[in-house]
Amino acid sequence: MTVLRIRIEAHDLPGSTCPAVPAAHGADADPGYRNVHVAVQRRDRPAGLLAPQPGNAARASWTLECTATPSPAGTDVTGPYVQGRPGDRFVYLSWGAVGETGTFTMFRRAKLLLGAVPAETLLAAVHSGLLVGRLGLTDALGRPLCARVVPPHIAWTAPGRGQGRC
């Protein structure tokens, strides 16, 4: 077992509002949201959020303390913010509206699939102790990014020791 930090670096955040969208093609209407924030969701605790960031920030980042363990399928990454079963691990970025009382009401999530990290990048990250995922958080419609996120929408790198921002 090896200590591994995962740093998520986000840019191109969509703003502090998410406009309403009418129902179409069998989908429910989206009422729109104000005071939009994004955070990493803790495993097994949807209300457990790591460092909510405003949706209108220039950039956002989170560092997750994890462990990496060799497995028959490659490397298994676990930690308090890593979701899913072995071979299907991921990190949720949860989008929510923050109310007057500070309550975060989630309305969508982006699922960063760790299984989409190239094997050689993950091995280099285990060696260096750091895996970095860089992504934009605005979708093609100008709304908060959601659904499955894999390359090329996220770039995974393993900076060498002493490289990269902390």
Rank of each mutant, 00 (worst) to 15 (best):
A57S: 10
Y33V: 02
V40H: 10
R109L: 04
T101E: 14
P72K: 06
L113I: 14
S71P: 08
T78D: 00
Q163T: 15
Q53Y: 00
V77I: 02
A24C: 05
S94M: 10
G115H: 06
I8N: 05
D30M: 11
A57T: 03
D28W: 08
R134H: 09
G26D: 03
T138F: 03
G84T: 04
P118W: 15
A155F: 03
A29T: 02
L49F: 12
V91H: 15
G79E: 05
G48D: 14
A125Q: 05
L123I: 04
Q163P: 14
P54M: 06
A51S: 08
Q83E: 07
G164I: 13
H11R: 07
A97G: 04
S71G: 13
A125D: 04
V126E: 04
T103Y: 05
L50T: 04
A140Y: 10
L123V: 13
T63Y: 08
A39R: 06
H11S: 04
A39F: 08
L112I: 13
C66K: 02
L49I: 09
T69N: 08
L135M: 15
P152C: 08
R34V: 06
W156Y: 03
A97P: 01
A125L: 11
V82I: 10
R42N: 08
A110Y: 07
S16E: 00
Q83R: 12
R45S: 10
L112M: 04
T67N: 09
G102I: 05
V77C: 00
